[in-house]
Amino acid sequence: MKKDLLAIADLTREEIYLILDTAEAMREIGLRPIKKVPTLRGKTIVNLFFEPSTRTRTSFEIAEKRLSADTLNIAVATSSVLKGETLVDTAMNIEAMAPDMIVLRHASSGACHLLARICKSRIINAGDGMHEHPTQALLDAFTIREHKKRIEGLKVAIVGDLLHSRVLRSNVQLLTRLGADVCLSGPPTMVPAGIERCGVRVLTSVDEAVVGADVIMMLRIQQERMQGAFFPSLREYFTVFGMTAERVRRAKPDVIIMHPGPMNRGVEIASDVADGPYSVILEQVANGVAVRMAVLYLLAGAPEMD
């Protein structure tokens, strides 16, 4: 493994499988009466969150605690940003206290790269702007593999706001690297330019995109996108792109439905689908802890030289 986990784009196939296999072992720890191993004793991990996030931060924190690391949560509610402190200054101040790892969530794409350049600490990307959210894609892959026993050759449909989604970018990188057949669908106003060059297909018709799918992955729609004229209304979005039971029927009978959360019921996904038998949304959350434990463990070792 490299020093940092900044993007799925930086990982080889083998590294992805190593993380997934290690996560299998880590998951068992969560089933024990004492859900804790001494592995990262004496390691300090700072969870540095510049964006509010309950799910990802909690998941990382549980993973860190299960590995016995000392964890510290810093939620920068843009307060020091308002005071004029730059990300670099914030990072250098934290770095001066010599943590072993920094888990960073930030609204700017590439913020983790900036941190990785100036910090000796290992940097784990917990979501940077519209760029990547690598641990989300890894836990998605873990969940898919658990259900389908493989990833190669699976038909995966990803539906929603493709343009602003870091989950999309990480999943495209990961799924294409592992040989899945990935089909994207979303309003043409929210399709990243040239994304086909990643080896995916883009269809505007969600009905076509989900045909024969083994996996349907929904992306969150943010309400403020209406202001940018990306789509006219939430109601219309649901009509055109919302995942309804009727649309799910076009997929394979054993399709699984995924969502990175938090869900907008009745916008991108119908409640009966979210709560229905195909939904693995809560499993994704559970698997997130194991996958993050695996990442923390694997990064805690000596870095591979470039």
């Binding site: 784009a9 794409s109 590439g110 940077d128 702007g129 519209m130 760029h131 990547e132 870091r166 970018r169 990243p192 330019a193 040239g194 994304i195 060059r197 990643c198 940018g228």
Partner: peptide, 21 residues
Amino acid sequence: KGDGVAHEGFSASTLGLRGIP
């Protein structure tokens, strides 16, 4: 241009940077 920061194309798309066509 909007709040674009880089040329709208493959590089900006994969890096998650807002594009300027």
